[in-house]
Each structure stands twice: as structure tokens, then as C-alpha cells.
């Protein structure tokens, strides 16, 4: 069925973008945290630094920045449903 196939394609596309944005966001955040650690501790301690980043990233998962990425999955589908409703059912 064409409609289901179309929805599947859209979902795959959204998932790909979702993964890319999420990885990019996490990577930039990790780099920022590592820099912050290096500035505070010039001598550096890679094992403690790794723990620091790990803990900070657990908190990062709960920030609105990390959660807003889900909009990538929601907004296009919501827009399509809105268009379908406006074109065919009003």
C-alpha cells in the first residue's frame, strides 16, 4: 500500500537525521566537557576526566537540548498529518 510505504520511507529518513543530530550534539557536548576539565585541571588525569564526562553526560540526557531532538521525529509527521487533514477533510 502506497501510503504505508510512504510513511515507512519518511520514518526511515527521520530516524537517519535523528541519529546524525544526536551523535553530533553528544560529541560537541563531550568535547566541551573535556575542555572544561582540562582548563580546571591543567595536569590532567584521563581516568577521572572520563568519569567526569560520563556523569555530566547522564545529566545532559535530561536537558531540553537533548530532548528537543525528538522533534525531528515528530514535526514532519505532524506536518504531513495536518496537510492531509486540511486538504482532504475540511
Amino acid at each position: 500500500m502506497a501510503l504505508l510505504r510512504f510513511v515507512a520511507i519518511i520514518l526511515l529518513f527521520e530516524a537517519a537525521i535523528f541519529v546524525i543530530i544526536r551523535r553530533w550534539l553528544r560529541t560537541t557536548e563531550i568535547i566541551r566537557l573535556e575542555r572544561e576539565w582540562d582548563e580546571r585541571h591543567p595536569r590532567g588525569d584521563s581516568e577521572v576526566r572520563r568519569l567526569f564526562v560520563q556523569r555530566a553526560m547522564a545529566g545532559f540526557e535530561r536537558t531540553w537540548r537533548a530532548r528537543l531532538v525528538w522533534l525531528v521525529m515528530i514535526v514532519p509527521l505532524a506536518a504531513i498529518l495536518t496537510i492531509i487533514y486540511l486538504v482532504n477533510h475540511t
Partner: peptide
């Protein structure tokens, strides 16, 4: 059509 242009119109009989 379902992709382009993205109007998703299926009610032409109506």
C-alpha cells in the same frame, strides 16, 4: 502523488 508536490490529496471524487 504521495511525495511531490506534497499535497497528499486523495479526495478528488469528493
Amino acid at each position: 502523488g504521495l511525495i511531490w508536490p506534497p499535497y497528499f490529496k486523495y479526495d478528488s471524487a469528493n
